[in-house]
Design a protein around this nucleic acid. Structure first.
Length: 334
DNA sequence: AACTGACACAACCGCTCTGGC
DNA sequence: CGCCAGAGCGGTTGTGTCAGT
């Protein structure tokens, strides 16, 4: 038994909207408003589904929409909010006047996600990849970790190689040290981005070394040994991984122009990963409930997911406050 | 010039939520 | 309380454009 379609598909036009259709819809809405979307196409003389009209209006025709490039501050806002609320595009878009959820979603998927990945940040959790690997490893016994490392290398390696070789990555600006321990062969060469096999092998060896060091390290009082030290400094294990991404392990900046904690104090340099897993609390909360479908066998939706939908801010660890978020955002009126 | 792949954006699909009855 | 229609939302797909070969 299928779902009842929102309209008769045989009689409706689909695909790109023509200027004539846009005009009809705009002028009808200007006169009558947007009260009943199912009636609007009929009354406006459009062979379109009401839903399609609503989408066209809200995503494109609305007079208060911005259509240009996203500004840097808008991008910063998106990344910040995404690290807190996850893929709740409408919530994020609500904080950006003139932008729609579709705009934000597309911009995220096409640009921002890659930007973060290029910086060694997992766009889902907003943690450095190195932290993620180390954290995953902490939950497993050494034999399992060994398998994990091998498996991870299979896919992770490709991603890293891609990032290191194909894409332009500003690890730490023009004066940046070479990736790794200063081996010039690992430095990105803008003039000749094509790596030789030695480069690839070195990179793989670096990854393996970081993982194996993480694996071999003794647990620290039963706690996560690969996590940050008490003062927020990376453990040896992490350092091994962070050698790969010097900007990631210690205060990377979004714009990739410099690293360290002597930045401009902008939200970028303060909040995303300033040498600790500060975003981890929120990110982990997301991973547990907001980002992912509940895969439990009991068939119940994860409570975190429910809470997130209801705007329950209690799911955000109080010691992981990242930014001053408006009350509206933290208690969204949906 | 033709082809191809990557990219960005628009539009659609289907699930969920909400309010009225 | 349950049902239904309308609307909202996020994921996915389609399509046009452009750069590289």
């Amino acid at each position: 038994m299928g779902r009842i379609p929102c309209c008769e598909k045989d009689n409706v036009k689909r695909g790109q909207w023509t200027p004539e259709e846009d005009n009809k819809l705009s002028s009808y809405i200007a006169q009558h408003g947007t009260r009943n979307w199912r009636l609007i196409p009929k009354n406006a003389g459009l062979q379109r589904c009401g839903k399609s009209c609503r989408l066209r209006w809200t995503n494109y025709l609305r007079p208060d929409l911005k259509h240009g490039e996203f500004s840097e501050s808008e991008e910063q806002t998106i990344v910040k909010l995404h690290s807190v609320v996850g893929n709740r595009w409408s919530l994020i878009a609500a904080q950006l006047p003139g932008r729609t959820d579709n705009d934000v979603k597309n911009h995220w998927n096409t640009k921002l996600k890659k930007k973060l990945s290029g910086m060694g940040i997992d766009p889902v959790t907003h943690k450095p990849f190195s932290h993620l690997m180390a954290e995953i490893a902490t939950t497993l016994a050494p034999p399992q970790v060994a398998h994990l490392a091998e498996a991870a290398l299979g896919c992770f390696k490709d991603e890293m190689l891609h990032l290191l070789t194909k894409k332009r990555i500003d690890f730490a600006g023009p004066a940046a040290p070479a990736i790794g321990t200063g081996d010039p062969r690992l430095a990105y060469n803008a003039a000749d981005p094509t790596p030789n096999n030695d480069d690839k092998e070195d990179t793989v060896q670096k990854i393996k070394l970081g993982l194996s060091r993480a694996i071999m390290q003794e647990p620290n009082n039963g706690k996560a040994w690969a996590m940050m030290g008490p003062a927020g400094e990376p453990s040896d294990a992490l350092a091994g991984m962070c050698d790969m991404y010097p900007t990631v392990g210690d205060g990377f900046r979004y714009d990739g122009t410099a690293y360290g904690n002597d930045g401009d104090g902008s939200a970028w340099s303060q909040s995303l990963c300033t040498g600790s897993t500060c975003t981890g609390g929120a990110a982990e909360q997301q991973g547990g409930g907001m980002q992912e479908k509940d895969e439990d066998d009991d068939g119940e939706e994860a409570e975190g997911g429910k809470a997130a939908r209801k705007g329950d801010t209690s799911m955000f660890a109080s010691d992981c406050v990242l930014w001053d978020l408006s009350d509206d955002l933290m208690n969204p009126i949906v």
